[in-house]
């Protein structure tokens, strides 16, 4: 089991190494998008005194988040994971079944 986990970690690290540019782009882009989203949230918060918790809870919903951040994150996840596992899985599946 320990060996299996080590093997999985090794595969995971290899996947990240293979898509390192996506990871770097994500790490750089996300703070800018979050900043934009909070500027938008601040314009809505006109009444009362706003706090950090208001901004944090605002990242749970909103069209800006749904239309920009989640698709970008999905692309990153898919790019990292599909480096190894999905490709092998699809090849195996395509050998067994004829799709359409």
């Amino acid at each position: 089991m320990c060996c299996n986990i080590r093997n999985k970690i090794q595969i995971f690290m290899t996947d990240i190494k293979m898509s390192i540019w996506f990871v770097i782009a994500y790490l750089v882009i996300i703070p800018f998008i979050t900043l934009l989203m909070f500027v938008q949230s601040k314009s809505v918060m006109t009444q009362g005194i706003s706090c950090m918790a208001d901004y944090i809870s605002s990242i749970n919903h909103g069209y800006f988040l749904d239309m920009v951040i989640v698709p970008i994150t999905l692309i990153l996840i898919i790019n990292i994971v599909s480096q190894n596992d999905t490709a092998n899985f699809l090849i195996r599946q395509k050998k067994k079944v004829v799709w359409f």
Partner: peptide, 26 residues
């Protein structure tokens, strides 16, 4: 993502949480 959000929200307001007060946005 949440860590980035915490750091950036710190730039907008110094108050951490005020949801128990009647003057809050919440």
């Amino acid at each position: 993502y949440v860590l980035v959000a915490v750091i950036i929200s710190g730039l907008f307001t110094p108050v951490i949480i005020n949801w128990s007060e009647n003057t809050s946005y919440f």
